[in-house]
């Protein structure tokens, strides 16, 4: 086991941030921690990176105890905090060199590990890191977190504030890193990013809702989901809320994801109901379950 979390709880004053959390991350796994803002993701990351001490429970990272052997953990993990935390007044090159030196290595020694990523920002190596775009900042931060060849890599919301194309690239980079034998724990509030993870944990309000592969989590979803569309979105949601058989209604892009309480849901009946409410151009189609639907269902 690369990361082992057993019954971790943590409170700040009277706010309980983590409630009895347990899960494990296997060696070489790309593991996603998925949950909305304020779910406790950053607190958990800080406990694992030895920045905070849990009130209860224990955690080990790469075989080291998070409290007793915190110095060993600090030698062997790479950590990229949620906020861009490099020296903005240092250039790209200087930042990378600085982090290499404080970890007692050199840029050349582990260059092949970061080559894929660094090559994209190398043309800007003389630029101060504060003047980079969001995507480039993330690439630099990842390079700096990787430069000492860590055993475990912690990435706290690396794709927040990054454009969709760069986000996709970023996940592909993680996948390649994973092939080099690095265990990666990554957190994100974006449910659609989970597809490339080996396993994910859904977290909300400091509690783990489920831990499994993305596909299994979707398979666990008990209901059939329908995409409903009509000419007026807001009126549609109001009308569906008034429908007595509804189980769940979530706006999802241009559609509303709808589930019914009954096993034998009849779309025609709902269309008639909606038409009665004055809606036009109504369409109801069965659709694929997504992680987001599962999350919403679990979080109910």
């Amino acid at each position: 086991m690369s990361i082992k979390i057993e019954h971790i709880s943590k409170s700040f004053k009277d706010v309980s941030a983590l409630k009895d959390i347990s899960f494990e991350v296997k060696e070489g796994e790309l593991f996603g921690l998925i949950g909305p803002d304020g779910a406790g993701k950053t607190t958990l990351f800080r406990i694992l990176t030895t920045l905070l001490i849990a009130d209860e429970g224990m955690a080990t990272v790469a075989g080291y105890d998070a409290i007793k052997n915190y110095k060993d953990i600090r030698n062997h993990v790479g950590y990229m905090p949620g906020r861009f935390s490099l020296y903005q007044d240092l250039t790209v090159e200087e930042n990378l060199e600085f982090f290499a030196t404080i970890f007692g290595t050199t840029v050349e020694e582990n260059y092949d590990l970061i080559k894929d990523i660094y090559i994209q920002i190398e043309p800007f190596k003389k630029r101060r890191s504060g003047k980079l775009s969001g995507g480039m900042k993330q690439k630099l931060a990842l390079s700096c977190a990787l430069i000492h060849k860590p055993k475990v890599l912690f990435l706290d919301e690396p794709t927040t504030g990054v454009d969709p194309v760069s986000r996709k690239e970023f996940w592909e980079m993680l996948k390649r890193l994973q092939q080099k034998g690095i265990t990666i724990l990554v957190s994100t509030p974006y449910m659609d990013e989970t597809a490339l993870c080996d396993r994910i944990a859904l977290i909300q309000d400091g509690k783990i809702l489920e831990v499994d592969t993305p596909q299994e989590i979707i398979n666990h979803y008990p209901k059939k989901i329908y995409n409903i569309k009509a000419d007026k979105m807001y009126e549609l949601i109001l009308a569906l809320n008034a429908y007595e058989h509804n189980h769940s209604i979530y706006p999802f892009g241009e559609y509303v994801h709808y589930t019914d309480k009954r096993g034998d849901f009849n779309p025609t009946e709902l269309i008639q109901f909606l038409e009665g409410k004055g809606l036009k151009n109504i369409s109801i189609q069965p659709t694929e379950t997504t992680i987001e639907d599962t999350f919403m269902e679990l979080a109910r």
Partner: peptide, 13 residues
């Protein structure tokens, strides 16, 4: 303030 202390802490320094 800039969060770099967090990274310095999670380092062998």
């Amino acid at each position: 303030e800039l969060g770099t202390m967090e990274i310095l802490l999670v380092s062998p320094l």
